[in-house]
Computed example of a mutant assay.
Amino acid sequence: MRSYGGANPSGKDDLFTVSEAIRMFAEGVGLAYTTVRSYRWVSSRWPKERRRADVSHTIHKVLASIPDEQERFEAVNNPPSNARGGPARWTHDSAKRVVGWKVDSSESVQEKVEAIHDLAADDAVAAVVTTDFLRRPAVASKAMADDYPDHGLVA
């Protein structure tokens, strides 16, 4: 690594860029360059004294995308309540919800609607699914009544 003092304090031409150093390190330890670069970015977002030993690297990685530093540090210290009871704790999905990412396991109506829209993005799939849904009498009745024009869900 470079000595302190600027781009080329020693006057030598054999210095590496950060990307080159990461690439060499990744090769040396047998990891993908993108993995080491990701580890470096997450670490840069979490000074050692702000990291939580009881929170996984993956949770730190998701929460690292919170732009405001103070908000990020407060978030990691305030895990959401555990839906099954017990102490509050972070899960991958709860961290993703905090930053507005798509979750792996939908819970709310909005998340389920978004998941269905993602799965039925292809018109052929949407047509088959819609036909199947409309064969359910209760669904067809509600759809025909259209009682939900202001449901607030993203279409």
Rank of each mutant, 00 (worst) to 15 (best):
D13P: 04
L15G: 06
S19C: 04
E20V: 09
E20R: 09
M24T: 06
M24N: 13
T34K: 14
W41I: 03
R45W: 02
W46S: 02
K48H: 10
E49L: 10
R50C: 08
A53C: 02
V55N: 04
S56P: 00
I59M: 11
V62H: 05
V62C: 06
I66F: 11
D68C: 07
E69Y: 02
A75D: 00
N78M: 08
P80T: 06
R84V: 01
R89P: 00
T91P: 01
H92S: 13
D93M: 12
S94K: 05
S94N: 06
S94A: 14
R97G: 01
V98D: 00
V99N: 06
G100M: 14
W101E: 10
W101N: 08
V103W: 06
Q110V: 04
K112P: 00
E114I: 08
E114L: 15
A115M: 10
I116D: 01
D118W: 07
A120Q: 02
A120G: 07
D122R: 13
D122P: 02
A124V: 09
A126I: 02
T131I: 04
D132K: 15
R136H: 15
R136E: 12
A138S: 15
A140E: 13
K142S: 13
A143T: 08
A145Q: 14
A145D: 09
A145P: 02
D146E: 09
D146A: 15
D150L: 11
D150N: 13
H151L: 11
L153Q: 15
V154A: 15
